[in-house]
Design a protein around this nucleic acid. Sequence first.
RNA 1: GCGCUCCUAGCUCAAUUGGCAGAGCAACGGACUCUUAAUCCGCAGGUUCUGGGUUCAAGUCCCAGGGGGCGCACCA
Length: 504
Amino acid sequence: MSEQDATGEQDDEAKQPTPSSEIPYRFSDTVGAGVVALDYEHLEPGDGSGVIANVAGRVMRSRPQGKVAFAELRDWTGSIQLFALGQTTSDFDRFVRLSLGDWIGVTGEIVRTKRGEMSILVHSWVPLADARRGFGDKWRGVSDVEIRHRQREVDLWANEGVRELFLKRSRVVSSLRRTLDERHFVEVETPVLQPLAGGANARPFVTHYNALHADFYLRIAPELYLKRLVVGGFERVYEIGKDFRNEGLSPRHNPEFTMLEAYQAYADYSDMADLIETLVANAAQELHGTTVITHSERELDLTPPWRRVTMVEIVEEVTGISFNLRDDVDELRKRASELGVEVGDAESAGKIVYEVYERLVEPNIWGPLHVMDYPIEVSPLTRVHRDDPTLVERVTPVITGREIAEAYSELVDPDEQRRRFVAQAAQRAAGDDEAMIVDEDFLRALEHGMPPSGGIGIGVDRLTMILTDTNNIREVLLFPALRPLSQQTDEVGEAEFLDENPLG
RNA sequence: GCGCUCCUAGCUCAAUUGGCAGAGCAACGGACUCUUAAUCCGCAGGUUCUGGGUUCAAGUCCCAGGGGGCGCACCA
């Protein structure tokens, strides 16, 4: 029996399913289980409130005890105990036969039992759905990671804290929107299906557009479209959505991931670094009520302002060795080699320093720290530094050893943009299938004039990981990418389809 | 993609050197008018991921395949 059946149907002897005719179409005027428990906290053990309430949810525990019965009813606000009496509760015989996971709606008085448990003294109840499949171990839930991720709906109910985590994620995203909205950014939606996948260096997913007789690509970034909107007069614009990059999976990478990109006219990368700090700090405040949080059992102080250093400075600070981009390239390669970082003969000064930074420095930055001013060679889409032509104005906030975002002074000169596209296209012709393609639509847009602008990109999944003290990206994705199980679809799916469709 | 590793009852896990495949919970039948992982009595539950092979004997060893996890590579 495969893993797919792990929460399979229960014994043949299990009770008969509830007939559809007995299940109502609606159950109204409900109050939250967790809310009731809090609102009537003042009741003394043994007291009734005299208040009748409707509560709906899932039976998470059933403890029949002769002529009385207890159950735990859980909805998304929390849990409350159900207290049923053989003499006064309707359908008592069926109530005591409820299974873990069944959905029911109850009507009854809010009381506190003699033993002190907040409860609904059930007068009547209706079945809302049967749970025909098991919900895992009563005490330990389901720990099989494969079931948890393939059947997240089971995980959400069976495992304490999982729903809470995804509610937190939702609050993070809301907070990001609120912060941007308050600053008069306009939220937009740009194409996911694109004729050219631009705006980042990555291999795209390919799909086919039947009506247009053309292959299209799932976007790897919304960047170029958003900049065109700035050209069009959207001076502050943002998008939260999925990007798709055809890459491997790991505890920190999912091929489809949620990205926030925002662009602000008349701003530079320093302004955007401020914006990132505000976005992150506000989200932390929303979740934790403070900007000083804990991650991996270590304190993380996200209170703005964050320290800012240049990449060259932080490399020297951490390694104790100076890497000036104007130093002799062979000398730089030797210094890198002494640190255990080997780089190819063809690499430039900038790439060598970046390599040292990525391997030895970044993973050891607890942060938050803004690493500023990257070598121009490793940032082909960023505007050159105002004081140093070997650098670009790019800043990367690093938290817990990971980049969680990027900010730029955007490249807005159409001629320079064309030169860089052409250089990218040459690399692509030379075999680099992650290099960019010349995007004439985008160049034409720049020729209409784009004001100096700052841009940011924040990995929402990774930000959520940091704010929820999670170390695996799959824990913050409702349905992380998993290999499909080949057998199930055709055989089972088709058989059921035929069975239930007399016209088929 | 490559390397390492795991897959046993619905769930969580055992099974000595290769020697009759087990427990708790869930389910099922019963008792119980204040239970909190209720308790008590009873009962049932298996293609040990799949397919080959070695062996008197395979959950265990070997080969191939499927799926998961971790690491590497690519990246945010």
